[in-house]
Simulated assay, not measured.
Amino acid sequence: MRPSGGGFAGLVVGGAVDAAAAERLTALLEGLSMRRLSGGIGIRHARELMRGAIDAELAGLRQD
């Protein structure tokens, strides 16, 4: 697994790019960023949510 370029669009696992996983992670990151900038969520909590989502997506990709 290695990100290439910017963001999660280049997430590669086992040689295959899973565009759906990349889109879900990007959407989550954008949403958390908006909430963070508006003061609706703390940085620590946002990081925890993002880490959990990344772990869940990678676990799903490993099963495929």
Rank of each mutant, 00 (worst) to 15 (best):
A53R: 13
G60K: 08
G42E: 07
R2E: 13
G40F: 01
G31C: 03
V17N: 12
R47G: 08
A22Q: 03
E30S: 12
A9G: 09
L58D: 01
H45L: 13
R62K: 14
I41H: 01
S33G: 15
V13P: 11
R24D: 11
A19C: 06
G39A: 05
A22R: 01
L28I: 04
S33E: 09
A22I: 01
M1E: 12
E23Q: 14
V12C: 12
L11A: 05
E57M: 02
D55A: 13
I43Y: 02
I54S: 07
V12R: 15
L11T: 03
G60L: 04
R36Y: 09
M1W: 07
L29A: 15
S33C: 09
G39I: 00
R62M: 13
V17K: 15
S33M: 05
R2Q: 14
S33D: 09
D55W: 00
R62Y: 10
M50D: 09
S33W: 00
G6Y: 02
E57H: 04
D64R: 15
V12H: 11
D55P: 07
F8N: 03
G10L: 02
G52C: 03
A9W: 03
L25R: 05
A19H: 14
L25F: 09
V12A: 12
V13M: 10
S4W: 11
G31V: 08
L32V: 01
S38V: 02
R62N: 12
L28H: 08
Q63Y: 04
S4G: 10
G7P: 08
M50W: 04
R44K: 06
L58M: 12
A59F: 00
A53V: 04
